[in-house]
């Protein structure tokens, strides 16, 4: 199945979300398309979803090869007080996000991607990433904290 450039671009951005590196993102997408070429899909949406799964699995495999993929290291039972929209009120400067993007864990970048680009809610994101809602909220809580700390540190010139 052939995809239009808009779909390819979208997949590329997801690959970049995982890798935080444009060259790696392209390699990941190219590899996924090669792998998924022979898969028959009746709709472009299904094919895109399939390619996304391939990219994610491939990335996790490679990531695990180099280091442990930080997926299950958050205590699912840790107290979570914020709501699912706790990222909504976070503000950040463009430059700060660009700098921090590479330092954020891949899973957190995925959360940001599905939340900001795909427009998914917390329940949908937790299903997509196959993590519990509690884990997802804990992760968001930490992400929010980290973003604030890093930005503050940067403003103080510590980073």
């Amino acid at each position: 199945m052939e995809l239009d450039r808009t779909s390819l671009e979208k997949l590329y951005r997801y690959a970049y979300t995982l890798t935080a590196n444009q060259a790696d993102a392209y390699d990941l997408l190219h590899n996924a398309i090669e792998t998924g070429l022979n898969r028959p899909s009746d709709t472009a949406e299904k094919y895109i979803a399939y390619l996304r799964v391939i990219m994610r699995n491939r990335f996790i495999d490679e990531y695990r090869h180099n280091q442990s993929f930080p997926h299950e290291d958050i205590d699912d039972h840790s107290p979570v007080s914020m709501s699912g929209s706790s990222l909504e009120d976070v503000v950040i400067a463009s430059h700060d996000l660009s700098v921090l993007w590479k330092t954020i864990e891949p899973v957190d970048r995925e959360v940001l991607y599905f939340w900001a680009v795909e427009g998914l809610n917390m329940r949908e994101i937790s299903e997509k990433l196959e993590i519990s809602r509690g884990t997802l909220l804990s992760r968001i809580h930490r992400l929010r904290k980290r973003l604030s700390e890093n930005v503050n540190d940067r403003q103080r010139g510590q980073v």
Partner: peptide, 24 residues
């Protein structure tokens, strides 16, 4: 630095990520 909502910044950041013509 001018701050904007995180969601918008993430969108802007990823919008800048594009393949070139040869990659397409």
């Amino acid at each position: 630095p001018f701050k904007r909502p995180l969601k918008q910044q993430v969108q802007n950041h990823l919008d800048q990520v594009q393949m070139d013509t040869s990659q397409f």
